[in-house]
């Protein structure tokens, strides 16, 4: 059985800067802060946005220290602008 990966979704300006809407990370259980360097390495265009980004894990807002495990869905969320 292959190791499950972490699925990462990008929205809005983050998708533009990442150059994709979806990415798969091979990682052990970690935290959002822990996987950020992996995301940054693969999608360097995201770096300047870091301070504006929010994150969700499995569809709920999450903080940097929150756990991310293989099989989870992480969403990279720029400032929302609905309405």
């Amino acid at each position: 059985m292959t190791q499950k990966s972490i699925k990462v979704l990008f929205f809005g300006a983050a998708a533009d800067r990442a150059g994709t809407r979806e990415s798969e990370l091979s990682s052990e259980a970690s935290t959002l802060d822990g996987i950020w360097p992996l995301l940054e390495e693969r999608h360097p265009g995201l770096s300047p946005m870091r301070n504006t980004l929010a994150f969700a894990v499995n569809g709920e807002y999450a903080r940097g220290g929150d756990t991310v495990s293989p099989g989870d869905e992480v969403a990279v969320l720029p400032p929302v602008s609905g309405g």
């Binding site: 929205f11 809005g12 300006a13 969700a56 807002y61 969320l77 929302v80 602008s81 609905g82």
Partner: peptide
């Protein structure tokens, strides 16, 4: 609240 927390974006 929509403008604060709902993950929707416009361009």
């Amino acid at each position: 609240r929509i403008k604060e927390v709902v993950p929707i974006w416009k361009r």
